[in-house]
Design a protein around this nucleic acid. Structure first.
Lengths: 243, 243
DNA sequence: CGCTCTTTTGACTAGATTCAATGGTCGTGG
DNA sequence: CCACGACCATTGAATCTAGTCAAAAGAGCG
């Protein structure tokens, strides 16, 4: 099952996840007026490139993208994966330039909101301003968890955590937490987690043999969620976290 | 609550770096009215603990802190180091709970701003709201660079990049970029960079032997800035366009 | 001045990478 | 509709970077 947003924010299935969060019904139309639809982006093409001018905030409607940071020696770092309902471009506000590229992992459609309008909304609607602050704050906290993952955890723990996190993100979207499609390649997962694709492949094989997951190409089924959480090893203590 | 009379933001040397950025003179007094001073925090003690309620934003006046994320198996991840002028607590806005602890690395004093007042200022002063968005956006972008550092770089590149970054932060504060004190231990640096203290120690020895740095205990001098940048290896290139 | 914590150095180990080759999948065009 | 080619995934063997364990030297504090 896929999420099929309708044109108006008011009727969008992602309403509880995306920009409209917390906006009263009668204010949603203000958002609707400025949201622009774009034709779907083909798999492998960029929504925007690193270094390009930032003037538009994007929200993923359907599909998935990876955000990629390029270094001058040709290496890449995939800093995250954006799923339906996620916002793209918040990291570019301060400099006016995108610090990463956003590349579609599959055919993807987005909503585009000129940032001047976002700023204007934030000015007029306190609820909206607070929502924007909340989203950015959550991003900062998630980055800290990711830092801990990369800094302290083994390859197996990183992959298991990645899968658990993906599962949780599907839950937030009302999708199955046990069965879902991985829109990214093994190499993408590896790069994101600071590992190599060979290591990821070996770990997948291992998890399959242990009966924890079933994985055919990119169709994942989590057979033993608790085992996977155990493999992830660590939960962060204060309260439930997500990433 | 032992609050001393507020000292004016207007005359603070960190004015260009901290919360007052972009506020016109006549609006600074609004900030001054709500900023509370606190008695200095002793080295090793926490300004706030992970999991504790968030209701106050902090700005470092003097000294330095580390932000630490604890996992339930006893490991720690130092997610960052806060220097004079840096803000603490932005990652807690969305959940109302601190996702990290902030621990003083030396005797440290901070300004405390109740978050309700910050929100109120953001409501009344568009410039202030935009500054807050900018600071958080910059934080997100910095986290992405850090992700690339941990995910793709060797131990030597990580340490060299860390030193270069520290040097740049000193520059932003009008301090010497070539000579400064390291307020954190080798173990702290190691933890932050996803390495061990032994590795950091060996790398420092190596950089000393190469004549790139001079380091006595925690007094650092960068003798050959260019060599250090070379050792850092990579600079991030949003040079895709700009201009 | 002595105790403790931090830093340095050495020897050995191990988890993950690299290099290399084979096996699968999928889209495209004959 | 099947075959080809490109890309993605898996597996194996050898290597290496950084970690672990251990011990000694140095700095700071009461």
């Amino acid at each position: 099952m896929t999420l099929r947003p309708t044109q108006a924010c008011e009727h969008c299935t992602l309403r509880q996840l995306c920009l409209p969060v917390g906006l009263p019904q009668h204010e949603l139309w203000q958002l609707d007026e400025i949201v622009q639809q774009r034709r779907p982006i083909e798999k492998g093409t960029a929504l925007f490139n690193m270094g390009s001018r930032f003037d538009t905030l994007f929200a993923v409607r359907t599909g998935a993208l990876k955000t990629v940071l390029n270094t001058d020696d040709g290496t890449e770092q995939i800093t995250g994966f954006a799923l339906a309902g996620d916002l793209l471009g918040l990291d570019a506000i301060h400099s006016g330039q995108h610090p990463v590229s956003a590349v579609a992992l599959e055919s993807t459609s987005v909503c585009a909101v000129p940032y001047t309008h976002v700023d204007d909304l934030a000015d007029r609607l306190p609820t909206f301003r607070q929502h924007m602050m909340n989203v950015m704050s959550q991003g900062l906290a998630q980055d800290e968890s990711l830092h801990a993952l990369l800094g302290q955890r083994t390859a197996e723990q990183r992959l298991a955590t990645f899968l658990v996190t993906l599962s949780e993100r599907h839950r937030a979207r009302g999708l199955s937490t046990e069965r879902f499609y991985l829109p990214m390649s093994r190499a993408d997962i590896a790069n994101h987690l600071g590992l190599t694709q060979e290591t990821i492949s070996r770990l997948f094989t291992q998890l399959r043999k242990q009966g924890v997951i079933s994985l055919h190409t990119r169709d994942l089924e989590i057979l033993e969620p608790q085992s996977l959480r155990n493999a992830a090893g660590v939960t962060i203590t204060p309260a439930a976290s997500s990433a």
